[in-house]
Amino acid sequence: MSERKPVAEAELLAWRHGALPARERETLAARIKTDPAATATLAEWDRQDASLTALYGPISAEPLPEVMRAQLQAASGKTNRSVAARWPALARLAAAIALVAIGAAGGWGAAQLRPAATAAPGAALAAIRAHQTFALEVAHPVEVAASDAEHLTRWLSNRLGHSIQAPDFATFGFALLGGRILPAETGTAAVFLYENDSGQRITLYASPGDGTDDAAFRFVEAGATQGFWWVDSGLRYALVGEVAREALRAIATAAWDQLI
């Protein structure tokens, strides 16, 4: 009654590595049993997996190296002193949230910038400029759309020279539109653009750092556009938009969490 067509590779993969509902598993099991090619393929895969385990598995049975033990030890110590409830690294600098207000009503003359403030606003300002340019863009806000997520990730990571994946801001109502690259002082910057239902846009900007230490969130604003910038693992990040400061801070925090 049920026609027995050969089991497709995708089905075998789902069988072997997927989470099929019990019902489907049963049906598929019956079909595999009567399909010699499928049975042979599964046996072959078993052999492959056994070989890989034989090649690389033994290391996982070894005791942890001392260095890693020490890392864990140090971390559990820190956890107990829960002063820095979150982000031990950031908390050190949290007190130093700096307000870098830049000449209000637009205009980007260098004279209006205050280089004395700290080193990083270069990237923060570039982020604001990028935002003010592309967030208003109707026809071509991004170069690669979010629908092509894998290409976007790969392309931006390669150009930035650092793995980067667009964080998910769905909990804040913002969906990824896509991304683009821009020249930056220190190389190439990756820019992600997000939009919410009411058409508000925010920009996440990342550019290579110059090797300076990680830095906590700092606030930056220029006209109606404001944002937070920080430095993490050699990258300078900024999250900017025309969104309330506290909302931006929450989104920036989520970005920091997700940009691992």
Binding site: M68, Q71, K78, A84, P88, I260
Partner: peptide, 30 residues
């Protein structure tokens, strides 16, 4: 194990895992 399979070099694999731990442990509280 995974790092070793990727790099096929024990020392490099453990360096990679250490870097990974450092990053993970810095933000695990979050």
């Amino acid at each position: 194990r995974y790092a070793f399979a990727l790099l096929r070099d024990r020392a490099a694999a453990d360096d990679l895992v250490q870097d990974c731990l450092e990053r993970a442990l810095a933000r695990h509280a979050g």
